[in-house]
Lab assay of single mutants.
Amino acid sequence: MKGKVVSYLAAKKYGFIQGDDGESYFLHFSELLDKKDEGKLVKGSMVHFDPTPTPKGLAAKAISLPLE
């Protein structure tokens, strides 16, 4: 699924993505496929991810940034 980063707290390594389906997904650095892309996780960045339901809500897994 595609989505847009709505927040990312680099110090805490987490944030949120708004998916194309309108839902909010929890984003964690550990799910970023290329850790070098962390600096690109800023508000408004477009990402691809696997939407995954968890006991705490919806989460983004296997997060990647589109090729530039």
Rank of each mutant, 00 (worst) to 15 (best):
Pro66Gln: 14
Lys13Glu: 04
Lys13Thr: 03
Thr52Ile: 13
Leu65Trp: 06
Leu9Pro: 03
Tyr14Ala: 05
Ser7Thr: 13
Leu41Arg: 01
Glu68Gln: 12
Ser64Ile: 11
Lys43Cys: 10
Leu32Gln: 01
Gln18Pro: 02
Gly57Ala: 03
Glu23Ser: 09
Asp37His: 08
Glu68Gly: 12
Ala11Met: 09
Lys36Asp: 12
Val6Met: 12
Phe16Trp: 14
Lys35Tyr: 09
Gln18Leu: 15
Asp37Cys: 09
Thr54Lys: 05
Asp34Ile: 07
Ser7Phe: 15
Gly57Gln: 02
Glu38Ala: 10
Glu38Ser: 07
Leu67Cys: 12
Asp21Thr: 04
Lys61His: 10
Gly22Pro: 00
Gly57His: 03
Lys13Ser: 05
Pro53His: 14
Glu68Lys: 11
Gly44Val: 02
Ala11Gln: 11
Val5Met: 04
Asp37Pro: 02
Leu67Val: 13
Phe16Asn: 04
Leu27Tyr: 09
Phe26Leu: 06
Val47Phe: 01
Gly57Ile: 02
Leu41Thr: 02
Asp37Tyr: 06
Gly44Leu: 03
Asp20Lys: 05
Ala60Phe: 00
Leu9Asp: 15
Asp50Leu: 15
Asp34Ser: 08
Ser24Val: 15
Tyr25Ile: 02
Pro53Trp: 15
Leu67Lys: 14
Asp21His: 04
Ala62Arg: 15
Pro66Met: 15
Gly22Asn: 07
Ile17Asn: 00
Glu23Trp: 10
Gln18Met: 14
Leu27Phe: 15
Lys35Gln: 10
Glu68Asn: 12
Leu41His: 01
Leu41Lys: 00
Met1Asn: 05
Ala60Ile: 01
Phe16Val: 06
Tyr25Met: 01
Leu58Trp: 11
Leu67Tyr: 13
Gly57Asp: 02
Met46Thr: 14
Ile63Leu: 04
Glu31Met: 07
Pro55Gly: 08
Glu31Cys: 06
Gly3Cys: 03
Val47Leu: 05
Phe29Arg: 08
Leu58Ile: 05
Val47Asp: 01
Ser24Arg: 14
Asp20Gln: 10
Tyr14Asp: 03
Ala11Ser: 13
Ala60Gly: 04
Leu27Val: 05
Glu31Asp: 10
His28Pro: 05
Met1Ser: 06
Gly57Phe: 04
Lys4Ala: 07
Asp50Ile: 15
Tyr25Gln: 00
Asp37Lys: 07
Gln18Asn: 08
Pro51His: 04
Val5Ser: 01
His28Asn: 06
Ser45Gly: 08
Lys12Val: 08
Phe49His: 01
Asp37Glu: 08
Leu58Gln: 06
Gly39Glu: 12
Lys12His: 10
Ile63Gly: 01
Leu41Met: 05
Ser45Lys: 14
Gly19Pro: 01
Ala62Ser: 14
Ala10Thr: 11
Gly44Lys: 03
Ile17Asp: 00
Glu31Ile: 03
Gly39Asn: 13
Thr52Glu: 12
Glu38Gly: 06
Val47Met: 03
Gly15Gln: 00
Ala60Lys: 01
Ser24Thr: 15
Ala62Tyr: 11
Ala60Asp: 01
Asp21Val: 02
Gly19Ala: 04
Glu68Phe: 11
Asp20Glu: 13
Ser30His: 08
Tyr8Phe: 04
Ser24Gly: 06
His48Tyr: 15
Leu58Asn: 08
Asp50Arg: 12
Leu65Tyr: 05
His48Ala: 11
Lys36Asn: 13
Val6Glu: 08
Lys12Asp: 07
Leu33Gly: 04
Tyr8Gln: 02
Lys61Thr: 11
Leu67Asn: 13
Lys43His: 10
Ser24Pro: 06
Asp21Arg: 03
Ser64Met: 11
Glu68Pro: 12
Val42Phe: 09
Phe29Thr: 06
Ala62Trp: 07
Lys13Tyr: 05
Met1Pro: 03
Pro55Tyr: 09
Pro53Ile: 14
Leu65Gln: 04
Ser45Ala: 15
Lys4Arg: 14
Gly39His: 14
Pro51Phe: 08
Tyr8Lys: 03
Asp34Arg: 07
Asp20Gly: 06
Pro53Met: 15
Val5Ile: 11
Ala11Val: 10
Ala59Phe: 10
Ser24Gln: 13
Ala11His: 12
Lys56Tyr: 10
Phe16Gln: 05
Lys40Phe: 09
His48Asp: 07
Lys43Ile: 10
Gly19Asn: 03
Pro55Val: 10
Thr52His: 14
Glu23Cys: 12
Thr52Cys: 13
Ala62Pro: 02
Gly19Ile: 02
Ile17Phe: 01
Ser45Pro: 06
Ala62Thr: 08
Gln18Lys: 12
Phe16Arg: 05
Asp37Phe: 08
Lys2His: 14
Lys56Gln: 11
Gly15Ile: 03
Lys56Glu: 07
Ala10Gly: 09
Gln18Cys: 13
Thr52Pro: 02
Glu38Lys: 04
Lys13Trp: 05
Thr52Met: 14
Gly22Leu: 05
Ala11Phe: 10
Tyr25Ala: 00
Asp37Gln: 11
Lys56Pro: 03
Gly3Glu: 01
Glu38Val: 10
Leu58Gly: 04
Lys4Gln: 10
Leu41Gly: 02
Lys36Cys: 12
Ser30Arg: 10
Asp20Asn: 09
Ala60Ser: 03
Gln18Asp: 09
Gly3Ile: 02
His28Cys: 08
Lys61Ile: 09
Ala59Asn: 06
Thr52Gln: 14
Ala11Gly: 11
Glu23Pro: 02
Lys13Ile: 03
Pro55Asp: 10
Lys61Ser: 09
Gly22Met: 06
Lys43Thr: 10
Ser64Pro: 01
Gly15Val: 03
Gly39Pro: 14
Gly22Gln: 05
Gly22Val: 02
Pro55Lys: 11
Leu33Gln: 09
Ala62Leu: 09
Gly3Tyr: 00
Lys43Met: 08
Lys40Trp: 07
Ser24Met: 15
Lys13Met: 06
Ala59His: 09
Ser45Tyr: 07
Lys2Ser: 13
Gly22Lys: 05
Leu65Gly: 04
Asp50Gly: 06
Gly15Asn: 00
Ala60Thr: 02
Asp37Asn: 08
Asp20Met: 09
Gly22Asp: 05
Lys12Met: 10
Phe26Ala: 03
Phe29Met: 06
Ala11Leu: 10
Ala60Glu: 02
Glu23Leu: 15
Phe49Lys: 00
Leu67Pro: 13
Ile63Val: 13
Glu31Pro: 00
Gly44Pro: 02
Pro66Val: 15
Lys40Ala: 08
Ala10Arg: 13
Thr52Tyr: 15
Gly15Phe: 03
Lys35Gly: 07
Val42Pro: 02
Glu38Pro: 03
Gly39Ser: 14
Tyr25His: 01
Asp21Gly: 04
Leu67Gly: 13
Asp20Ala: 11
Leu65Pro: 03
Ser24Asp: 06
Pro51Tyr: 07
Phe49Met: 02
Leu65Thr: 07
Leu65His: 04
Val47Ser: 01
Gly44Arg: 03
Gly22Ala: 05
Ser45Gln: 15
Leu65Ala: 06
Met1Glu: 04
Leu58His: 07
Lys40Gln: 07
Lys13Asp: 03
Gly22Ile: 02
Gly19Glu: 00
Ser30Gln: 08
Val5Phe: 02
Met1Phe: 06
Tyr8Ile: 09
Met46Asp: 08
Phe16Cys: 07
Tyr8His: 03
Lys12Trp: 09
His48Arg: 12
Tyr8Gly: 02
Pro53Gly: 08
Thr54Phe: 05
Leu67Arg: 13
Val6Gln: 10
Asp21Met: 03
Lys56Val: 07
Gly44Asp: 06
Ser64His: 15
Asp37Met: 10
Lys4Leu: 11
Asp20Leu: 09
Thr54Gly: 10
Glu23Gln: 14
Gly22Tyr: 04
